Simulated assay, not measured.
Amino acid sequence: MVDHARMLPDAPPTTIEIDPLPYETRLEARPTAAIRGVVIHCTETPDLARARRIGEEVRYPSGTGNSGHYYIDLDGRTLRYVAPERIAHHVRGHNADSIGIELVNRGRYPHWLHADHQAMDTPYTPAQIAALRRLLAELESRLPTLEWIAGHEDLDREQVPAADDPSRQVPRKRDPGPMFPWDEVLAGSRLRRVGE
């Protein structure tokens, strides 16, 4: 059941396309009662197709890779790549108790770790933010144990040597970045933001 008080006026219900990653069933199962938080990411790719290819890459001996649970395209189209009942690899230290939501956004693409390419200056689209608000309202309604929300950058603050100048340090993760409208997204939500 969706909390319509949190939804935008005249907003249609969330339509979520189910498009599981090839390895979804290899990801560890969990009870939904274990889910306490939501982590907001951006894909740091120019389009959903590239984000999907990255998500499909196998990176672990288990035959799985890195991916969020939900992806929101520029036009607000919302897809589920991993069911919430599975632990996706989307943020170090918090995978077991959180859901990862990825918004398509260029971020620092294609030079993610170059010292002079750290601006995160591409705005999120109104359609993405509206879809995200609807998805969060739906998750809050379905998952009563949800209590917190964070950006990837709030939880992973590691600095690493820049790819183009190892004498300089850059953030390993900066998403969702300074263009993300936290106040708008959290208006009416019961989730508390952590890690800022």
Results as ranks from 00 to 15, higher is better:
residue 23 Y to R: 00
residue 68 G to W: 01
residue 120 M to G: 03
residue 71 Y to S: 03
residue 174 R to Q: 14
residue 132 L to W: 04
residue 8 L to Y: 09
residue 108 R to Q: 08
residue 13 P to M: 06
residue 163 A to E: 07
residue 90 H to L: 07
residue 53 R to V: 14
residue 78 T to G: 01
residue 118 Q to H: 09
residue 170 V to T: 02
residue 53 R to E: 15
residue 179 M to I: 13
residue 20 P to H: 00
residue 108 R to V: 07
residue 15 T to D: 01
residue 19 D to M: 04
residue 25 T to K: 11
residue 63 G to N: 08
residue 122 T to S: 09
residue 49 A to F: 14
residue 56 E to M: 03
residue 12 P to E: 10
residue 34 A to W: 07
residue 119 A to R: 09
residue 151 G to L: 06
residue 159 Q to E: 10
residue 37 G to Y: 04
residue 71 Y to M: 05
residue 113 L to R: 11
residue 8 L to H: 11
residue 77 R to E: 00
residue 172 R to D: 07
residue 32 T to A: 15
residue 186 L to N: 00
residue 138 E to F: 03
residue 99 I to M: 06
residue 116 D to T: 13
residue 79 L to C: 06
residue 134 R to N: 06
residue 117 H to R: 13
residue 79 L to Y: 06
residue 96 A to C: 04
residue 135 L to Y: 00
residue 67 S to V: 14
residue 3 D to V: 01
residue 126 P to Y: 02
residue 97 D to W: 06
residue 79 L to E: 04
residue 171 P to K: 03
residue 193 R to Q: 01
residue 61 P to C: 09
residue 30 R to L: 04
residue 174 R to F: 10
residue 156 D to A: 01
residue 34 A to N: 10
residue 182 W to P: 02
residue 8 L to N: 11
residue 133 R to H: 08
residue 120 M to N: 04
residue 195 G to V: 03
residue 128 Q to F: 10
residue 181 P to Q: 05
residue 70 Y to T: 00
residue 159 Q to T: 05
residue 133 R to K: 13
residue 184 E to P: 03
residue 109 Y to V: 08
residue 33 A to Y: 08
residue 107 G to M: 12
residue 98 S to E: 04
residue 1 M to K: 12
residue 172 R to S: 02
residue 42 C to Y: 14
residue 102 E to V: 15
residue 179 M to T: 15
residue 52 R to I: 15
residue 23 Y to C: 00
residue 142 R to W: 03
residue 181 P to Y: 05
residue 81 Y to P: 04
residue 100 G to S: 05
residue 52 R to Q: 13
residue 1 M to Y: 11
residue 177 G to W: 05
residue 86 R to M: 11
residue 69 H to T: 00
residue 171 P to Y: 06
residue 87 I to E: 11
residue 69 H to G: 00
residue 50 R to H: 14
residue 74 L to Q: 12
residue 90 H to V: 03
residue 140 E to Y: 01
residue 180 F to M: 08
residue 121 D to I: 08
residue 72 I to N: 01
residue 178 P to V: 14
residue 175 D to V: 12
residue 28 E to T: 14
residue 111 H to I: 11
residue 192 R to V: 04
residue 103 L to C: 12
residue 81 Y to N: 09
residue 19 D to R: 00
residue 99 I to S: 04
residue 106 R to Y: 13
residue 137 A to N: 04
residue 7 M to G: 02
residue 102 E to K: 09
residue 120 M to P: 05
residue 190 R to P: 09
residue 76 G to P: 06
residue 141 S to F: 08
residue 133 R to M: 11
residue 142 R to N: 08
residue 9 P to E: 10
residue 55 G to N: 09
residue 176 P to A: 10
residue 50 R to F: 13
residue 193 R to A: 04
